[in-house]
Simulated assay, not measured.
Amino acid sequence: MALKATIYKAQLALADMDRGIYGDHNVTIARHPSEADERMMIRLLAYALNVPADDKKGHLEFAKDLWDVDEAALWHKDYTDQILHWIDVGQPDDKRLMRAAGRAERVSVYSFASSTPVWWKAIESKLTRAANLVVWQIDAAQSQALAKLAERSMQLQVSVQDGTVWMSTAADSVEITPRRLTAGD
């Protein structure tokens, strides 16, 4: 018998001063049985950092990457089903990233393991043609601290200023500073 996803709900109060985006977002996350809290919270962070200011060009939504290899962790599709932004988390291989770069206008990766520099060094030269790709490194200690905020029902305040993110609950707060590894556009 197949294991089912665990449903998490998050209320995000977003104040992104870098992009001028403010608002409340209620999201539902289907957590795959093999997914750890850390990865799920990185997906939630990626959502907060990439949610569009409005819905005029479609919605940013959680996809089913752990169930279907042809899907991203998150994607922003327009109303014609064109992929505007493909977002992966972890350390996808170069072939997956090149396929994503061909399918979407923009591709972002949020890598959070301590082995990120080794992974990136091994594939960086294979991705030079993917001008629409940006890779971000989240410090492993920061992502592990972020995982501790995970609950089945979450109320999170997310503040972004000068490239630094503060994700807070009523009881705790985590500072995250994503580091850009690529030049992309």
Rank of each mutant, 00 (worst) to 15 (best):
Y47G: 01
H59P: 00
D78M: 07
S125K: 15
I83F: 00
I123Y: 08
T169W: 03
G90V: 08
E105Y: 09
F62Q: 03
S34L: 12
V165F: 08
V165R: 12
S159F: 09
N50L: 13
K64E: 04
R99I: 09
D88A: 03
A122S: 15
R103N: 07
A145Q: 13
A100D: 04
A73N: 15
Q157I: 04
A131M: 09
H85P: 06
W86G: 02
N50F: 11
D172V: 10
A63L: 03
M154H: 04
M40P: 11
L156M: 01
M41G: 09
W166T: 15
G163Y: 02
Q91H: 10
K56R: 05
D94Y: 14
K57M: 03
K77F: 00
S34A: 13
T116Q: 10
E175W: 09
S173D: 11
L133R: 07
L60N: 01
I83C: 05
M40E: 13
Q157H: 07
Q144T: 14
E105Q: 13
Q137S: 02
H59C: 00
A30N: 15
W75L: 04
K56T: 03
S125R: 12
E175C: 15
Q137P: 00
M41Y: 11
S108G: 04
I42A: 08
M154V: 08
E124G: 11
A122C: 10
A122G: 11
Q82K: 12
A104R: 09
W75H: 05
A171S: 15
E175G: 10
I176P: 06
R129D: 14
W75F: 03
A104D: 08
H59D: 04
V89P: 01
I29K: 09
A113S: 02
K64N: 07
E175I: 14
D94I: 10
P92D: 10
S173R: 15
E151Y: 11
R96N: 06
K121C: 05
E71W: 12
A122P: 06
I87A: 10
Y110I: 06
Q137I: 02
D139K: 13
A131R: 14
R152E: 11
P52I: 03
L60E: 01
H32W: 06
A30M: 14
V89E: 01
I87M: 08
R129G: 14
T116A: 13
L156P: 00
A170G: 06
L84Q: 13
E105F: 05
A73S: 15
L45H: 03
D93F: 12
I123A: 12
V134Y: 00
F62I: 05
V107Y: 05
E124F: 06
S173A: 15
P117R: 09
L97Q: 08
A63E: 04
I87S: 06
K148D: 10
L45T: 03
I138M: 14
I83P: 00
Q144F: 09
V107K: 05
Q82N: 07
V118R: 14
L149V: 02
E35N: 13
I176Q: 07
T169Q: 10
Q157R: 12
L49W: 02
S168L: 03
G58C: 12
E61Y: 08
D93M: 08
R152F: 08
I87C: 08
E124W: 06
V69F: 08
P92V: 11
W119G: 04
L149T: 04
R103T: 06
V69W: 08
I123T: 12
A73H: 14
V107S: 05
L84H: 09
D68G: 01
W119L: 06
K56G: 01
V174A: 11
S168Q: 12
G102D: 13
